[in-house]
């Protein structure tokens, strides 16, 4: 039992969880509004899109790579799909548009995967480049502009809710979009992939020691390629859900999300160099960022200060985990010395 607790306190997830708890209690004390049914549902709903993005970013970082192109990829996919189905006068349900988006997102992911996996170019440079290309293609070639109307199927998917939670005191009510199930599904799939497939263990292995992974017989190039394709697919689903939930398509308002998403992933204990990290940490880290972004207003912090708080959180959070790493490294060195003496 004691051992379990000790182990727990070695993990970043535990600390993030405690910080989340402390922050929520603080908000509750200051505003009395945190532990209300509608606030909880609001936060869950706000988690959907960042959570999806985070899963993709997490897998890529875990493999030792990085992807900064996912917001642009998602924007391009979502815009192209919405526009295409609008022009078609599509009246069916949301499945076909989602499938189309998955297809487009997969193809765009292949571009990243081809350059990073097969041509072995640095992921940072490649995705910075493709990010620019995706954005440019959307704004230039597709002449994107805000679409105030979206196909009916998408619209009804965005408004369909699993349940509605009402705050008895204020009378405010919030609904949980059905899209939340998609987040749950993708997290589940990612979990199964990581834990139970050789592809998933390959992601860990490549992130830990790429040369060793190759020597052991992992198909490193193909694994990376497929990984970026998967990240592209997940990002494009996120993009579509965003459009459905907003009931309109605003081509540029997802751009710039990459930094906070990656920060959330790293905050959750994923090592930026790859190899170490858990899905739980990824989700908790993202939740922390979402919470700070959404709830500062509840403790009376003006919205203009939001970025400062998010920034501070990132610096402090990553500094703590970096400190932990150096500390464990040092104690290891000490242990070695005492062994020599013995």
């Amino acid at each position: 039992m004691q051992n379990t607790i000790k182990k727990l306190f070695k993990r970043t997830e535990t600390y993030i969880f405690l910080i989340l708890l402390a922050l929520s209690v603080l908000i509750q004390v200051r505003s009395g509004q945190f532990y209300t049914p509608n606030n909880i549902v609001d936060i869950m709903s706000a988690m959907i899109v960042p959570g999806l993005f985070a899963v993709g970013a997490f897998l890529v970082i875990l493999s030792g790579g990085i992807d900064v192109s996912f917001p642009a990829l998602a924007s391009l996919t979502a815009y192209a799909t919405t526009k295409m189905f609008l022009d078609m006068g599509y009246e069916g349900n949301v499945l076909l548009p989602i499938l189309a988006a998955i297809l487009i997102g997969g193809i765009l992911g292949m571009i990243n995967g081809f350059f990073v996996g097969y041509l072995e170019l640095p992921a940072m440079i490649v995705t910075l480049g493709t990010s620019s290309v995706f954005k440019g293609f959307m704004q230039g070639t597709l002449e994107s502009r805000q679409l105030a109307v979206i196909p009916a199927g998408m619209k009804s998917f965005g408004t369909s809710s699993l349940f509605t939670a009402t705050n008895t005191q204020s009378g405010l009510s919030s609904r949980l979009p059905a899209a939340f199930l998609v987040l749950v599904l993708i997290v589940l799939i990612a979990f199964l992939i990581l834990k139970y497939t050789m592809f998933g263990r390959g992601i860990y292995a490549i992130g830990g020691n790429e040369a060793a992974a190759y020597n052991a017989g992992f198909r490193v190039k193909r694994t990376k390629f497929l990984l970026y394709v998967f990240a592209g697919v997940v990002a494009s689903i996120a993009g579509m859900i965003r459009v459905c939930m907003m009931q309109q398509c605003h081509p540029t308002n997802m751009l710039g999300m990459e930094m906070n998403i990656i920060a959330g992933v790293v905050l959750g204990g994923t090592v930026i160099g790859g190899g170490r990290g858990t899905l739980t940490g990824c989700i908790l880290g993202t939740l922390l960022i979402v919470l700070v972004e959404n709830s500062m207003i509840l403790i009376g912090v003006p919205v203009v200060w939001k970025d400062v708080f998010v920034g501070l959180l990132i610096v402090i959070g990553t500094a703590i985990s970096a400190y932990q790493v150096t500390r464990s490294g040092r104690s290891k060195g000490n242990r070695k010395q005492t062994e020599e003496v013995a």
């Binding site: 263990r201 860990y204 292995a205 830990g208 020691n209 040369a211 060793a212 052991a216 190899g275 170490r276």
Partner: peptide, 16 residues
């Protein structure tokens, strides 16, 4: 460098 994976457990390193 032994071609091992520092981030995985001993068990997984052995069996993978």
């Amino acid at each position: 460098d032994f071609s091992v994976f520092p981030n995985l457990t001993v068990m997984e390193n052995l069996a993978i």
